[in-house]
Design a protein around this nucleic acid. Structure first.
Lengths: 352, 352
DNA sequence: AAAATTCACGAAATCGTTTGCGTTTTTATA
DNA sequence: TATAAAAACGCAAACGATTTCGTGAATTTT
């Protein structure tokens, strides 16, 4: 039988190899790092032994020594979300390709918890942080102070003016503009808008796109057709949503279409409208931001504004890694807005 | 103005505080760890300075010293997946509560990539690994060797007999049995089954549940009503799926219902049946495993077998942490199967 | 007042790597 | 042959934190 050579609690270290081969620790280290100082014979012996015994360098020790951990902290509001999952997928793809590990944490839309995440990641020695801020978050000073202390930070999806760094998001203004325009061109005139109550760019940009489309089409903006839902808690979101829909449908001059601003709002809105017995799109048309691949299979098929979530994640990770590795000295921070796509389906069928 | 006190590249260390307060490093460490050896006055001074300068212990150093990193490696096939996202949410909740960080990696259903993930996590010094194996994976010897070397491992969702440890999954047999029974009780007799081509327990358990329900209902199992799809690649999955459906519908004695075994298969199957012009449930009924919260809103509303994904994640994380912290010496490994729930909707309406 | 405790702190080893520099041995040059 | 230059390796410091042990000073005990 072949004995387990590894000590019970941990793996082979340089010291173990050194002892076994009767060499010094530094010789082992240099051999494994293919240093010119070591003879080919020795290198081979060391390499062979190391492979046989599954040596792999202790990342903690290496990180400590080099001041780098080759890990990236990712802070998102929630893991259980389509769009976010796709962004994480993109982040992970790029990170893995560049041998970075990602440490994911959830803020659950709480500013406080978000700060705790960041703190933990920072002290954990991450080389940089990718963050999509919680919707509660208004104070970016802590993040700024970390940035000033030298920690690379990149914002993605939800952006903010309060911090100067690379930012990768979707072109929310254009997406909202296109969605609204699509409704207008399909014959809808009284277009309501359901948004969140956040201070983040994502909300205002989409609102502005909506307004601009109305303006460009010479349709007056009616404040009563704008309602926002509390995004911090699912319960509240649903009740706010139902309330808003009932409010819309009881207006004397009620809307003939709704444009919804986020994934959750879009899909829940469809569900609620169905439940309340409204017929889409005859009673009311619906288009909204969401990335669900079930849009086609919904009842009715839901027209959507699709965000390139995977690509956003990829780009954000690339930007962060370039900051970490200082590929460009003294970087010019830029904000990239990736294009969104309208996918017109039955829920916004042209008015006859 | 208030100057940034932190050095450019990194944070405050014990040494910095020691120098600033003219004390020794050990005194600082002990103060912050509230040691009895230090006077109250000194402790207060140190604490005050530490807080003011945002000191937080370097996790790498601490981990190195203690031989623990307070981090957990999580290996899943994909991030972009509903059920998995919910499981990750559960894992993260428990991990955060116990101050563990989670490092998530994707195997993308590849055995090779999975091995690379595990290797990376191990050398990264994780305290334990949570893994839902890739469907390609047949060889668990590497995982076993790590386990023998002392690394705690817990399997979740997709289990395997090839490794002896804690396992947390859904009661797939019962879920499949219930789903099939539900179809039978609703008047369907010719029930087809769409599954994956994997060797993992998840597939065979669901198949067995299906078979058992047929048997208990005195319905003969017909091999031609069982088809499996390649799960390793989305393209292939879709084409396999379409092929299988066409095959089913062209049988002389064609099925009047389909029971689908996984999230992806279930939702795509619905989409495909719609696209092919079949009417659900009149032409063919459909029930399948999936956790999507859009089931209600689909066309038609999809009957589902729901897995307690969040809870599975929670429990798996708890089990792993208890292994890590050796709450029970020499643990009796156990396999927990959490209950699934049938949610009957329009897609399996009773035959008239 | 002398002895024994307690108190408050510092020195140094340790975790596993990396790396600059010193040392020995071998080889090449004058 | 004496000397310079490479080659091959070891020593030791460093990264930041924890922890054992040792040491003066202050306090208490007889």
């Amino acid at each position: 039988m072949h004995q387990i050579e590894i000590s019970m609690n941990n793996s082979v270290t340089l010291k173990d190899i050194a002892k076994a081969l009767n060499l010094s620790i530094s010789t082992i280290s240099k051999s494994l790092n293919d240093s010119y100082e070591i003879s080919i014979d020795t290198k081979q012996k060391v390499l062979e032994y190391a492979q046989k015994h599954h040596y792999s360098p202790n990342r903690l020790a290496k990180g400590l020594k080099e001041g780098k951990s080759r890990s990236i902290g990712v802070v998102v509001c929630s893991l259980d979300n389509n769009v976010i999952a796709q962004m994480l997928d993109g982040i992970d793809t790029v990170s893995s390709d560049n041998s970075y590990q990602i440490i994911i944490m959830q803020s659950k839309e709480s500013e406080k918890q978000e700060a705790a995440c960041i703190e933990l990641l920072y002290s954990g020695g991450v080389d940089g942080i990718l963050i999509s801020p919680a919707c509660e978050t208004v104070d970016f000073s802590y993040l700024r102070s970390l940035q000033e202390a030298g920690l690379p930070i990149v914002l993605f999806d939800r952006l903010s003016d309060q911090i100067n760094t690379h930012k990768v998001g979707a072109d929310n203004f254009q997406g909202a503009y296109d969605a609204t325009m699509h409704l207008i061109k399909s014959g809808y005139k009284n277009i309501a808008h359901l948004n969140t109550n956040t201070t983040l760019s994502i909300a205002t940009e989409r609102l502005n796109g909506y307004k601009q489309a109305l303006k460009d089409s010479n349709i007056a903006y009616r404040p009563e057709l704008l309602r926002s839902c509390d995004y911090s808690d699912t319960q509240k979101l649903n009740s706010d949503l139902e309330e808003a829909i009932l409010y819309f449908m009881n207006l004397s001059d009620k809307p003939d279409a709704i444009f919804t601003a986020t994934d959750q709002i879009s899909t829940r809105c469809l569900t609620l409208l169905n439940k309340l017995g409204y017929h889409i799109p005859d009673d009311i048309a619906l288009i909204g931001f969401t990335n669900t691949d079930l849009a086609e299979a919904l009842s009715p098929a839901l027209s959507t504004v699709h965000q390139p979530a995977f690509e956003m994640g990829q780009l954000a990770a690339k930007k962060l890694i370039s900051l970490i590795e200082r590929k460009d000295q003294d970087p010019e921070y830029e904000t990239v807005m990736l294009e969104t796509y309208i996918k017109a389906r039955a829920s916004t069928q042209s008015k006859h």
